[in-house]
């Protein structure tokens, strides 16, 4: 399944490393990544493919949310369909 991840939080060293290493540990492939810092707020979106992972979507989601809570980041993972539905005619 292809999903969009969004990561938002105060900018500091190591956010990308932390998130990406967690994804790697669950065998989730990153297809695209965009990152910016606006007024000190770190914002990153990733297009990921979860089909290579042996973990269920719920397990992946829980692990990401937990990592977000541990590190003070707001992390979402959502199927790409919702963004396509809302922003593509």
């Amino acid at each position: 399944m292809k999903a969009i991840m969004t990561v938002i939080g105060s900018d500091r060293v190591g956010i990308i490393a932390s998130v990406c290493s967690l994804l790697a540990s669950m065998d989730i492939n990153i297809l695209d990544i965009t990152q910016t810092v606006m007024e000190g707020i770190f914002t990153m979106t990733l297009l990921v493919d979860t089909s290579t992972s042996k973990h269920s979507f719920d397990e992946i989601r829980s692990a990401l949310i937990q990592r977000g809570e541990d590190e003070g980041l707001n992390i979402h993972i959502q199927r790409t369909d919702i963004f396509n539905a809302m922003h593509r005619v």
């Binding site: 969004t6 695209d32 965009t34 910016t36 979106t45 297009l47 809302m86 922003h87």
Partner: peptide, 9 residues
């Protein structure tokens, strides 16, 4: 990939 501003919206 989708536009970052659309995603954040």
């Amino acid at each position: 990939m989708l536009n970052i501003s659309d995603i954040m919206q």
